[in-house]
Amino acid sequence: MHAAEFGRVEKAYPGRDGRPAPPAIADFTLAIREQEFFCLLGPSGCGKTTALTLLAGFEAPTAGEILHRGTPVQGPGADRGVIFQGDDSLMPWLTARDNILLGPRIRRMPRDLQQERAERLLALVGLKDHGHKYPRELSGGMKQRIQIARVLANEPDMLLMDEPFAALDAQTRAQMQEELVRIWSGARTTVLFITHDVQEALVLADRVGLMRAGPASAIRDVLAVDLPRPRDRTDPSLVSLYRHIQGILAEEVAGREALP
């Protein structure tokens, strides 16, 4: 059984004046294995986020089928934790600790267990001494750590990450990637990670799904990255994969621009 499966999924949003627009993704088929780190990579506007939104259950597909561990996705749920791109999903009126405890509170976890879990997760993401702070007092990288901790507090089967490090500076991003690998190695949940950064995908993923340029986008290729972790960005085999993928992406973008 797969962690998640997309079977010929299509998602079209209503157009500006209510007329049907071309679908964001069409005939989108993909299977994600249990416990793997899967990166969905593609040019901007290709519908990567759409695919994640559908698997998260925030929106319904207009055609096709989405399965999570063999059961159709009916809506959002605690078994699929979502980490958003920006920081706007953190509650600005709650401290970092209370943001982490949202999930346990929703699930009515006993109070003493809650505190214990919050402390453990704050330590895990390296923010032991920042639990009392409000999101506005934290840096961009710290806020994304809080988002990760908040989702892990729920012990989901799967992490859905929507370009979570896109807004961070290069140093922080590299550091966050390393830590994510460390956390994932410990927790061993399945990860679907969306990015448009080829290097990021190669540093993180077991397999990389390359998408076509939109609209009506779908998976073009799936590449395995059989390299030991932690990975070196200058490793020759990583660099040659990087060149290969850049070539495909350039082709996709050029193809889209050639369209009338």
């Binding site: 998260a56 259950g57 925030f58 809506g75 959002p76 749920g77 605690a78 699929r80 934790g81 979502v82 958003f84 920006g86 706007d88 999903s89 953190l90 509650m91 949202l102 999930g103 929703i106 699930r107 908040r150 989702v151 729920n154 859905l160």
Partner: peptide, 13 residues
Amino acid sequence: VRNRIRAVQAMGA
């Protein structure tokens, strides 16, 4: 903010 609602929904709310 829509993502706040989505965030708690994805926690089983």
